[in-house]
Write a protein that binds this DNA or RNA. Structure first.
Length: 436
RNA sequence: UCCCCGGUAGCUCAGCUGGUAGAGCGGGUGGCUGUUAACCACUUGGUCGGCGGUUCGAAUCCGUCCCGGGGAGCCA
């Protein structure tokens, strides 16, 4: 190696080095040979670039190394960057040195069709594919946009526990573990109750973390481990939280459109339906929603929660997310405040993403009164003792407050146009999958 | 848990009115001085998911179990 090694360049910024010699480090994405001219496409995590090996332009030894290369072999290349219209990206590297680091053996994922099970078993390798990389970049943008939004609104990030002594809602199945011989602990299915405590301390708070549900759900919308952004604010009403949820989703979607246009192109995701979020989101009461469904020939019974089919129908009625509010109290969780104008209804809301993606947010105004909450616990057959701390929030300066939770994978799936949430998280946990 | 569909080469699949297995891609070898999922030639490749049954004979028909996919309920 010459003593003056050329600078290392990211493939994404190769154009800046036009005319100069650079070093690039990465993995073989593609190989082609035409005798004495050989091509390889390298990826380095920032992008792709083509290298050209012309016999005579580099040491014969290095030229021969090309024949050893396989898909996903790692290597270090040096060469001169030059504009080349025939190369993908418009620039290519005229290789003057090729140094393999590791020759990959039998890389299983070809740039061909593969079945879902095959790819999921190799998720650790599948992540290297351009589409999967694009999804991860959109996910990263979503996460950062959420945090940016809340900080701009004066919300404080508060981390809630993952190991919990009790169920938050009692209804869904929990993952159970032994807690050092002191009894059972459960993996958190929501940070909400703790977030309510934090809101009484800090006013406006949010959390961002994994949640776990041991539901035997086998659908395109379910994971057993998924990430949720939850917000909780003292003195916020249902109307306030609906506006906050709408503003959050609008902000996040516009950020993705602004910063991740290239990824959406890789995913062949038409951005037009996403751009509709800049307008106000329609709001429908549960009663109005039932009426709309009846127009479509459905006959949903009052008092029932909306099923997946009905959600899909409602979300297809609009070109942007829709907020459905004031469901019957009877089909909702114990902590939801009743509507003073109609006590049969809960001050709650769901946000349904368009294009059939369904629920991405669920939220409500919380019960503020101690006696009401106690009565609710009884109705739902929930034990009072483990929730004494939660009841304390109603004993010591209770105030009206509201919050919601946003499912990160569902939002990412919608933004990327995915058919299943399992591609929206790096290593999905599903009913029948705990590997890799 | 329930209802559908599927399991054949490393991958994606064809073969399924019973007669002992095929394609494309991948892998390997050779050729090619501008390739774009390159191309051309040759070549390698299989307990047809497991077990049991029917039959002279089963990838094919029947039973059962296992695994995968899609959907329902529940939810973000």
């Amino acid at each position: 190696m010459p003593s003056n090694t050329p600078p290392v360049a990211d493939l994404a910024s190769l154009a800046k080095f036009a005319g100069q010699a650079v070093t690039i480090r990465g993995w073989v994405h593609h190989l082609r040979s035409s005798g004495k001219v050989r091509f390889l496409v390298v990826r380095d995590g920032t992008g792709l670039a083509q290298g050209v090996l012309v016999k005579g332009n580099l040491p014969e030894e290095d030229f021969k190394q090309f024949d050893r290369l396989t898909l996903e072999s790692s290597l270090i290349l040096t060469g001169r960057v030059r504009a080349e219209p025939r190369a993908p990206g418009g620039y290519e590297l005229e290789v003057i040195s090729l140094q393999p680091l590791n020759i990959a053996q039998d890389y299983p994922i070809a740039p061909k069709e593969h079945g879902v099970a095959f790819l999921m078993d190799r998720r650790h390798l599948w992540l290297r594919s351009p589409r999967q990389q694009a999804v991860m970049r959109v996910r990263d943008e979503v996460c950062r946009a959420c945090r940016g939004f809340f900080h701009a609104r004066g919300f404080l990030e508060v981390d809630t526990p993952i190991l919990t002594p009790t169920a938050c809602e009692g209804t869904t199945n929990l993952f159970e573990t032994d807690y050092l011989g002191r009894g059972k602990a459960y993996l958190s299915q929501s940070g909400q109750l703790y977030l309510e405590a934090a809101a009484m301390a800090l006013g406006k708070v949010y959390c961002f973390g994994p949640t776990f549900r041991a539901e035997k759900s086998k659908t395109r919308r379910h994971l057993t481990e998924f990430w949720m952004v939850e917000a909780e604010a003292a003195f916020y009403t249902l109307e306030d939280i609906m506006q906050l949820a709408e503003d959050l989703v609008r902000f996040v979607v516009l950020k993705v459109l602004e910063n991740q246009e290239v990824q959406l192109q890789i995913l062949e995701r038409d951005p037009t339906p996403l751009a509709a979020v800049s307008g106000p989101f329609p709001r429908l009461s549960y009663a109005e929603t039932l009426a709309r469904l009846q127009e479509q020939g459905k006959e949903p019974a009052w008092g029932e929660d909306l099923g997946g089919d009905e959600e899909t129908l409602v979300s297809q009625m609009f070109d942007r997310p829709v907020l459905v509010h004031r469901y019957p109290l009877s089909c909702k969780a114990f902590y939801m405040e009743a509507d003073p104008k109609d006590p049969r209804l809960a001050l709650c809301m769901d946000m349904l993403a368009p294009e059939g993606y369904g629920e991405i947010i669920g939220g409500s105004q919380r019960v503020a009164d101690l006696d009401t909450l106690l009565a609710r616990l009884e109705e739902h057959h929930l034990p009072q003792e483990p929730l004494e701390w939660y009841l304390d929030l109603r004993r010591y300066g209770s105030v009206p407050h509201s919050g919601f939770g946003l499912g990160v994978e569902r939002l990412v799936a919608w933004l990327c146009g995915l058919t299943h949430v399992r591609e929206a998280i790096p290593f999905p946990r599903l009913l029948d999958r705990l590997y890799p």
